[in-house]
């Protein structure tokens, strides 16, 4: 499938699943008895988090591919995945407190999942910052790949550390296990929503990648044109 057809496919799927997800969230899923209407943000919050994580896994994969092939295409993919991943993580960090405040009375809780998300956000903000401060495209790609790989290796360690730390320092209010003992209608809604946000992720990733491909194409074209011009001036 060509990139264009593929994009159309992703966009249509995004449209269908997102419409279905919104309908199910607001019309079908029952209102949670204890948390009330705010609990509905859960159907956005959780899929965002999962897809952010998918993004970082993609950064790891494409960084690895870049180092083994040196093909700039993989660097562009790693960058796009990281940016969309950071965007989704930011949204997770925003929707989390919106959910937490009415339910637990606090904006932020150092709950294991939320803390892991925050640490991930910091790691990949660092990844994106690093990229801005290296001029040479090849060096940038190589060093970013090193950070993309080590950053992801760190994720399970961060997770276990925070998990265990939580059990040793229990909090007064603790997050009820997401997804544990979920009502079947709620579960169905969650799954549709996960699909919708996965397509959203893929669509944004593809768009970001298009921009990056176009940018590097123009750069090469401009360089070639100017080089040809310089050649012409000399002879």
């Amino acid at each position: 499938m060509s990139r264009c057809k593929f994009a159309i496919f992703i966009d249509s799927m995004l449209f269908i699943t997102m419409a279905a997800a919104m309908a199910m969230i607001f019309l079908y899923a029952p209102i949670e008895s204890e948390m009330g209407i705010v609990q509905k943000i859960f159907y956005v919050h959780v899929p965002l988090a999962w897809n952010a994580f998918l993004g970082f896994a993609m950064v790891f994969y494409y960084s690895f591919r870049y180092l083994s092939t040196r093909n700039p295409r993989y660097d562009r993919r790693a960058l796009s995945a990281a940016e969309v991943g950071v965007l989704f993580t930011t949204l997770v960090l925003i929707t989390g407190p919106i959910w937490a405040k009415p339910v637990w009375g606090i904006w932020w809780t150092w709950d294991a999942r939320l803390t892991l998300t925050l640490v991930l956000w910091l790691i990949y903000i660092g990844y994106l910052m690093l990229r801005r401060y290296i001029e040479s495209p090849e060096r940038r790609a190589v060093l970013a790949a090193v950070v993309g790989i080590t950053g992801f290796i760190d994720v399970p360690l961060v997770y276990f550390a925070i998990r265990w730390w939580r059990t040793q320092h229990p909090q007064p209010v603790i997050a009820g296990g997401e997804g544990s003992g979920l009502d079947p209608a709620m579960a169905a809604t969650l799954w549709v929503s996960v699909a919708a946000f996965t397509f959203l992720f893929l669509a944004l990733f593809g768009r970001r990648l298009d921009v990056e491909v176009e940018r590097s194409r123009r750069e090469t074209e401009r360089d070639a044109a100017e080089a040809a011009h310089a050649q012409g001036v000399r002879t």
Binding site: E219, R222, D223, A230
Partner: peptide
């Protein structure tokens, strides 16, 4: 060897 638009070596 190119540096952007400059061909340092041709």
């Amino acid at each position: 060897k190119r540096y952007g638009r400059i061909a340092a070596l041709n």
